[in-house]
Design a protein around this nucleic acid. Structure first.
Lengths: 109, 109
DNA sequence: TTCATATTTGGCAATATAGCCAAATATTAT
DNA sequence: ATAATATTTGGCTATATTGCCAAATATGAA
């Protein structure tokens, strides 16, 4: 792994890390249906307003969402919708695991 | 976000977290070219043997790779190759950011 | 059996992340 | 101007992650 490869990996990792949190992933998935303001997530997620705000800024820093202030509210929307299409593969990994576990169960019992 | 949604998000997050580390991502990408044993990564990555082993076990726990012991060596291979195909989207996010930065630069100078 | 090699595991210190509270900021309504 | 609402920021503690070292385990070689 040379320096250039390392830098590229770190850039990709920033995006992956941003999505690698249950609340942030859920927020990103909700945004697939259209933009939402911060307060809408506060009620839905059940954590502090400041926590939601910070989660959104992580997604923004990673380039996954963009924000727009309109009046008192700040609206967030997906900037790169493919981030959710690519989740299909993550789901495939999970389904694979479920199958493996089922196979193991059959072998044991 | 109800309990079921939360559980599903946590399962997906496990996969994302496993890839969200420069060394682990690089390892996963190398495995696209075929299986490798642990020691091959130790030399290439330049961290402790035990560290590489732990990284590989994180990838294994997440269901991304599988291992097979042959002789003294343990060989790892990609179990779900799409995890790398889905990285194309992550790359798209990064390219988007680069374009944004270029645009900003043009506006300022 | 004894030795060398390949790998995993346990434990520890350093660092990063999450989430709460309080304070700062911005915008609209009164 | 004052108040109320929406959001961000700073600071703090709790928890999680990383990576090293040393020890344990497994396998093939001598």
């Amino acid at each position: 792994m040379n320096i250039e490869e390392k830098l590229i990996c770190e850039a990709k990792v920033k995006v992956l890390k941003a999505l690698a949190h249950p609340t942030r992933l859920w927020i990103a998935e909700q945004l697939a249906d259209g933009e939402r303001c911060v307060c809408e997530f506060v009620d839905a997620v059940g954590v502090d307003f400041s926590t939601v705000s910070k989660h959104l800024s992580v997604l923004k820093e990673a380039g996954i969402v963009e924000d727009e202030k309109r009046g008192k509210q700040v609206y967030y929307r997906l900037k790169v919708p493919c981030v959710l299409k690519f989740m299909h593969c993550v789901e495939a990994v999970i389904e694979d695991q479920i199958k493996d576990r089922a196979r193991l169960k059959e072998h044991l019992f």
